[in-house]
Design a protein around this nucleic acid. Structure first.
Length: 256
DNA sequence: ATGGTGGCACCGCCA
């Protein structure tokens, strides 16, 4: 079982990159964020034509999530069941008896704003969602763009960037309050190396070459699954394409 | 380097 997450920064702009990646890597499940496409315009046929099912919830210009799989996609959930549902950031489904939770967590803009409070609340609402609907004994993958760098090893300039909305104590605590429910950071099971990033800001000149990046994308798993994880790696191949996303895929393999 | 680039909708907003 191979599961991947990829913030595409517009699916219409990078449909070729995503389709090529699926053909090359044959994932059992690919979770996308920032699809930036309304549901009526979602390029469903492109996935049909490579034998994949897809569910999605999006909007114009911003946000948008999708789950793609060659297997049957069951029990879809679109958004929270309380307001605001935030459907373009939260989509859940069941694939081969594993619950897949795909989140595009709000970035938070600036710490002294409502948007940042909304980000913190988002983690708390997610914790409520797990409390209410599942137990840690279930087989759950929680993945996506979390917009949090958890430790100094996950960010290129921990001193200089301390206090930014993706690297400060409130978001560490907020993410931890969800992982404490029963999730393991699958990537960190395999390496404690610093400088392993999934995001490089377009605005930093030669940021990728200099590896001025952040680890913002995660694959979390409950215990029954984490015990079966065989590998987890960041795939930089899509960065070699023309006009790459500012994120790159994170992939996990499970012996299932 | 208090900047920078990119995507999208529209002439700013978000990342």
């Amino acid at each position: 079982m191979k599961i991947a997450t990829f913030n595409v920064n517009s699916l219409p702009a990078r449909l070729d990159i995503v389709v090529d990646w699926i053909k090359t890597n044959s994932p059992d499940c690919l979770c996308l964020q920032e699809t930036k496409v309304q549901d009526i315009n979602f390029p469903k046929e492109a996935f049909d034509s490579i034998g994949c099912n897809v569910i999605f919830s999006g909007q114009k210009s911003y946000n948008g999530v999708a789950i793609i799989s060659p297997h049957k996609i069951e029990n879809p959930i679109y958004g929270f069941d309380t307001e605001p549902a935030d459907t373009p950031r939260f989509i859940v489904a069941r694939i081969k008896n594993i619950t897949i939770v795909n989140t595009y967590i709000p970035q938070g803009y600036q710490a002294a704003t409502e948007k940042f409070q909304y980000k913190l609340q988002w983690f708390s609402r997610l914790r409520d969602f797990f409390d209410k609907n599942f137990t840690p004994n279930d087989s759950i993958i929680w993945t996506g763009d979390f917009n949090v760098a958890m430790t100094a090893k996950d960010i290129y300039d921990p001193e200089g960037l301390y206090g930014s909305v993706c690297y400060r104590p409130e978001v560490w605590d907020a993410l931890k309050s969800v992982t404490d429910w029963g999730f393991t950071d699958i990537f960190r099971m395999h390496t404690d190396a610093a400088g392993q990033y999934t995001f490089w800001d377009y605005r930093i000149r030669n940021g990728v070459k200099r590896n001025f990046g952040w680890r913002l994308d995660y694959i979390m798993a409950t215990e029954s699954l984490s015990k079966k994880c065989a590998a987890c790696y960041i795939d930089k191949a899509p960065r070699l394409k023309d006009r790459p996303s500012d994120h790159t895929p994170l992939v996990a393999k499970f012996d299932l």
